[in-house]
Design a protein around this nucleic acid. Structure first.
Length: 579
RNA sequence: CGGGGAGUAGCGCAGCUUGGCAGCGCGCCUGCUUUGGGAGCAGGAGGCCGCGGGUUCAAAUCCCGCCUCCCCGACCA
């Protein structure tokens, strides 16, 4: 490909709306272009990278027997009503409902419903199972806040695979096979990927893993144990073991400390936010700050029953599955809880659930909400001043917390979610009409399903972020848009140089190598800088100086090393590049 | 959805306070010179100053409304 013919325009300065390095470079080097917030065009260079990533995914999934197909973007809304996800999928779905002649359609954010219907019409017998299908398809998700170019978008390219098995063990075996395929995919992309336990969100199912790429631009945090293999997304991570005897010991210690410490009423006017209270009571709390507060949140458990959740003020809460926090209108209806001033003392007729961290009181006692406006109470100890009905892990894990498996310390790492896999079990087959097959005994049985998603367009951003320097991108060979970038210094102006370059390009292309040929009449500096920016792994430079000696220069983009080769050695070079 | 910032040529920005010809750098086009790390000179093209309304003799500039984009948060693959 000749650059003079390629639809590309490199920019010296990045558009001001780009924030992170990979996004700036992808824009400057002409890989992508923004059409609207979270909506990107892949320019020719960008599409080649995307196609190369896709091709690796195809090869590895095909290798484990998965079959590619292509399902529609437009999905009848009734399908989502059938699975109940028209309600549960949150706000991502409704924004992309379109009305056509055939009724209402969803611009598909994912394809569990469609694939279940598709496969169930064909795989009617246990003889057809197991079967795994996949597709590379554009998905639509109305993200509240698209971010960082390709990292979080409203329209994205995803590879989603779906497995159908006859029983639970078989499903687990398929899950394992896909895990191995995923490992191969990520290693071919030269990415460090850490599979972690995760929460299943709107997809459903029990076992699921996220494939995390540690990265400073990540929006997720995962917990990993410094001693054992425990790894989990903070959303799913459990705090240290909920150990009855530890809690009991903490409570007893608290009772001892509580002697001579009376409850104190504090006047705390304002919003009642943790930060504000900690500030107002700084003379009482001292160094403790928000760690000396108990945060009490009202919500409803999976049965809709009111619960008050207690965690230290310094922690965020991870809601148990199915639980919800009170909304404004719930506060208006119940009138019982004064937002910002809720506390466990004297609170009756509601289940009090507390994180084990609450059992260990500060020596001056906790500061808790006073259950009346502008009031907090200090010197509060659990058991003496209030009772906890259920102890369970509620607080988000932090660096240095204890591992739930081995009790060593855990560490948090920032990361990007590159893929997510789920053992769905019967989640969809039990809801969708006719998602059954006849088993060996001739009885109708539901599919055991799994689903597996890789964010393809996101991977392009992740790989770019992990492979760049201050001059530009540095693509791994496996997904680079071209393998080698040939520069003819002076372009067409120097006939001899240009002819040799053309000859070299021809030989490389004949050998099946993808070549980007800079044939422009630009100064050497411009050509070099553009080459570094675009980030093709090898640069082959042909100029008048070298030509006089019968040599060209070969530069490795990643380490910057340059070496001269005789033009006659091109065949050897070609052989080496192909390895 | 809450908080903050910004929309002026393809990209980066100035001009706005104090209303008076639409500017600068890069990029782009033509010519000449130059040619191994973002060349020089000369000549050019390119604008709904985000949109709509208002004030005024006169609005990029002042006032009102809206839209879009970015950041932080909430939410989410």
């Amino acid at each position: 490909m000749r650059i003079s013919r390629l639809l590309v325009k490199t920019l010296r300065e990045a558009p001001s709306d780009a924030e992170v390095e990979s996004h700036k470079l992808l824009l400057r080097a002409g890989y992508i272009q923004r059409l609207a917030s979270g909506v990107q065009t892949y320019l020719p260079l960008g599409l080649k990278v995307l196609a190369n990533i896709s091709s690796i995914i195809r090869q590895e999934l095909d290798a484990v027997g998965a079959q590619e197909m292509l399902m529609p973007v437009l999905q009848p809304l009734e399908l989502w009503e059938e699975s109940g996800r028209d309600k549960s999928f949150g706000e991502i779905l409704p924004a992309f409902v379109v009305t056509g002649r055939g009724g209402k359609f969803v611009l598909g954010p994912t394809h569990e419903e469609v694939v279940t219907r598709t496969v169930s019409a064909i795989a009617e017998s246990w003889r057809n199972l197991p079967v795994t299908v996949y597709q590379l398809q554009t998905k639509f998700r109305d993200e509240a806040r698209p971010r960082f170019g390709l990292l979080r978008t409203r329209e994205l390219l995803m590879c989603d695979a779906y497995s159908f098995d006859a029983d639970k063990d078989s499903m687990a075996a398929t899950y394992e096979v896909i895990r191995l395929a995923y490992n191969s995919i990520f290693s071919r992309l030269s990415l460090e990927v850490v599979p972690v336990e995760a929460s299943s969100g709107a997809i459903g199912g029990d076992v699921n893993h996220e494939y995390m790429v540690p990265s400073s631009i990540g929006e997720d945090l995962f917990v990993s144990c410094t001693s054992c293999d425990y790894k989990a997304n903070v959303e799913a991570a459990k705090g240290g073991k909920v150990d009855e005897s530890d809690i009991e010991a903490n409570l007893a210690e608290g009772l001892k400390n509580s002697q001579g410490v009376d409850n104190l009423e504090f006047y705390t006017p304002g919003s009642g936010s943790i930060a504000e209270i900690a500030d107002q009571l700084s003379s009482h709390l001292g160094k403790l700050g928000s760690k000396g507060l108990i945060q009490a949140l009202v919500g409803k458990d999976e049965n809709g029953k009111d619960v008050v959740m207690l965690v230290p003020g310094s922690r965020s809460v991870v809601l148990p599955f199915g639980w919800k926090l009170y909304e404004e209108e719930d506060f208006d209806v119940s009138k019982r809880f004064i937002k910002g001033f809720i506390g466990p003392v004297g609170l009756e007729g509601v289940t009090i659930v507390a994180d084990p961290l609450v059992s260990a009181s500060p020596s001056v006692g906790w500061v808790v909400g006073g259950n009346k406006a502008d009031t907090h109470i200090g010197g509060v100890f659990p058991r003496r001043d209030f009772n906890v009905d259920i102890w369970m892990s509620l607080a988000q894990v932090e660096d240095g917390d204890l591992c739930p498996i081995c009790n060593s310390q855990v560490a948090l790492r920032r990361s990007v979610e590159a893929a997510h896999t789920f053992q769905l079990g019967l989640t969809y087959s039990s809801k969708m009409e006719g998602a059954t097959f006849l088993d060996k005994s001739g009885t109708s049985s539901q599919y055991w399903m799994g689903c597996y998603g890789i964010g393809v367009s996101r991977l392009m951003a992740v790989v770019a972020e992990a492979n760049c320097d201050n001059k530009g991108l540095i693509w791994p060979k496996a997904i680079a848009p071209f393998l080698i970038h040939v520069i003819a210094i002076g372009g067409t102006k120097d006939e001899k140089v240009f002819q040799s370059a053309e000859k070299v390009v021809g030989e490389l292309e004949d050998a099946g190598i993808e070549v980007l040929f800079d044939d422009r009449e630009v100064s050497a500096g411009v050509a070099f800088n553009d080459a570094d920016l675009i980030g093709i792994p090898w640069q082959l430079v042909i100029g008048a100086k070298g030509l006089a000696k019968g040599v060209f220069e070969l530069k490795n983009r990643r380490n910057g090393e340059k070496e001269e080769h005789s033009l006659e050695d091109l065949a050897i070079l070609i052989r080496d590049l192909l390895v």
